[in-house]
Design a protein around this nucleic acid. Sequence first.
RNA 1: GCUGGGGUGGCGGAAUAGGUAUACGCGACGGACUUAAAAUCCGUUGAAGUAAUUCAUGCGGGUUCGAUUCCCGCCCUCAGCACCA
Length: 793
Amino acid sequence: MLISLYMNTGYDFKKIESKWKNIWDKEDIYKTDIKSKKEKYYILDMFPYPSGSGLHVGHLKGYVGTDVYSRYKRLKGFEVLHPMGWDAFGLPTENFAIKTGKDPYIVTEENVLEFKKELINAGISFDWNREINTSNSNYYKFTQLLFLKLYKKGLAEKKRASVNWCPSCKTVLSNEQSIGGVCERCDSKVEIKVIDQWYFKITKYIERLLEDSKDLQWPISTKKMQEKWMGKSEGVEISFKIDNKDIDIKIFTTKPETIYGVTFIVIAPESPLINQLTDKEHKDIVDKYIKNITPQSEIDRKKDVKTGVFTGSFAINPINNEKIPVWIADYVLMEYGTGGGMGVPAHDKRDLLFAKKHNLKIEYVIQENKSDYKKSEIIIGPYKGQLVNDAREKIINDTPSAIKKTEYKLRDWSISRERFWGAPIPIIYCKHCGEIPVNEEDLPVLLPTDIKDYAPTGIPPLSKSEKFMNTKCPKCGENAMREAKTMDTFVDSSWYYLRYIDPKNKKEIGNKEDINRWMNVDLYVGGSEHAVGHLLYSRFITKFLYDQKEVNFKEPFKKLKHVGLIYGEDKRKMSKRWGNVVTAKFALEEYGADTVRIYELFMGPFEQYAFWDTQSIMGIKRFLTRVWELQKIISLNNIPSDSEIIATNTLIKNVDEYIEKGKYNLSVSEFMKYINKIEDIGSITNENLKKFLIVLSPYAPFITEEIYYNIGEEESIQKTLWPKIQKINIKETHIKIPVQINGKFRGEIYIKIDSSQEEVMDIVKKDTNLSKKIDTKIKKIIYIKNKIINIIK
RNA sequence: GCUGGGGUGGCGGAAUAGGUAUACGCGACGGACUUAAAAUCCGUUGAAGUAAUUCAUGCGGGUUCGAUUCCCGCCCUCAGCACCA
């Protein structure tokens, strides 16, 4: 029974994997020497939430990709920092804890152990000496310190404002967490609530965030997404006087040249001007309308029907003194610009819809050029006949009260949460002194351990712990209360990449010299879903630390790569709901780590999504069995044939190139081509087998280590260096080139290198097959030396 | 609607400073071994045709001796964003 199992699997991966796992662990082989003299390379994965549902093969793909690159860089002589940790605070853990009734501390610990075990089983070369955990007080002490630093510079601030509220998670969400008007965690419809919230003033950094992104080696789509999210638009602010009233309405527009076409003014339903603008006659309708509209969530207002009511007031167009009605409209957002806009139905789609619905005048003032708006022609007013591009400045100058202005869509980052499982905000409220920051020496502000019921209610759970809440004012020493809200987990993850460099430092985030030496992250890999959240926050925090002279770099992640999702065999997203989840645990036990690693990279381009396929993975298993069998055909004399040398050189060169380009799937093809070739030759020298194993080792660390050991090497394959190309003295005298007739491939011939056209034609004419085809008159010959010949007849 | 990707065999995918399209793998078919199956090994495999050859890289044009690659105009599809004035 046992024997047949061995025959089926080819080699006993379980035995090999557990053997080397133990040896590597004992030798602490992945330990990074921060003080090493070697050139540094920092390669980072986005750290995971250690959720209860465990690790599946999709998570693994990213880690395998970075692991191949890390191992490769070590072989290339770099000191590599490749750490891992846990984004342990936050809703996934907390919700899991609530569901299971377990303590979140215990839940975190259990999940972390499970995740870590699978990562080790997969042979990922993380340096576990540097493991971090955001829910550990040694870590969140510095999250709180970061808060204090921002607070002291006026960049952390409590404001009363309308916020996105998730009725199911019972907490506030940032704009980045409520994209599309739904909660990113639970898909509930987001509501709008007005409450006190803490904000980090990321908007102060917006210009620098835009400017510096130009130099980042990031996917274009991700950079564009950030750019769009920040939403810079340059335009003009114009004041419209209200007829018979002492009020001005300010509006923002990016198309001041359409001012001759303004036929109404629209203001947001939240506008403070509404009371003054509404006359008696319209008061009832306006009140009713506003009462109806304001409690609506953003998503309900985002529809094509543009509702609105007339206020009874008229504004005066400053350019031509025309009287135009002022309306309240739900498509105008209070948060953007001035909360009001000029209605130009002829040249704005939304205004057009609104005008049609409410029978407002439509006046065309521009002949629009579809391919380039700036080349549109003005057809009304003093600049009739001119292009928008030329007339815009003049029109701005002509418009009284017009001021150039730049508007952005990005809002400040809301960071406080009404939840338990997060870092407490280090602020104290004192009756006498007001809002006072905790002294830095008093950090960390520890999460209380005496709260049993931390299920969300909307009231911060920390407020239930008297032990936590009651404290002394750091300034006057009187009794005072703590802030009961905790920080969003994106604060934890906005600086974690710094902590790996010096994770045990108790005094500061980390040793400055080491941080400055090891940052930036040379390669950062993770899902594209963090494009506008985490990645933007991290850039902001890095810039802030730069300004405080804490660090000497302005960007955290030099190069960014996204990893494509793995879908289930049924082509649906892996989910418990469909029962199509392939867990890392299952795959590793069933196929072995080396097979799973190679398979995941061979599925397709790294950045692209792929479908799990239990048949294809067998191909990789077969491949590794053939690798194992190479041991049986080692040649005795150790003198490689020319073809063996050429094949090995090609392998080394191509794999090198493909790894550098991140084209892991193509390097796997190279390994397969190589083994096909060697099997054709029938033997391999010890020397070249070693080279093959070394270049394969980043992909399949276990089997290569075992064979390397079997063929007599005493030191780990991981401690060797990338093989060099062997110089050979084979002078190629002849090469094969394709022959085309009338542009179509018709055959190939062997020619002497650097033959002339005449010499090549002689060979073509001697070739019986080809000469038959060119018996008629030849019109023209195109010959590209050593490459191709095309005969036109 | 906007932004960024993609459309190549039965399937995953190779190949773009224009030069033998379909590498590598999966699957399928045929064969060897086996009492048999699995595993393994050896062939074949874009389509049509006995063959010469013809037709095939989403569709329609163009440039070129030659186009998957470059240009123009479409169609389809995936992802993200979307009342931001």
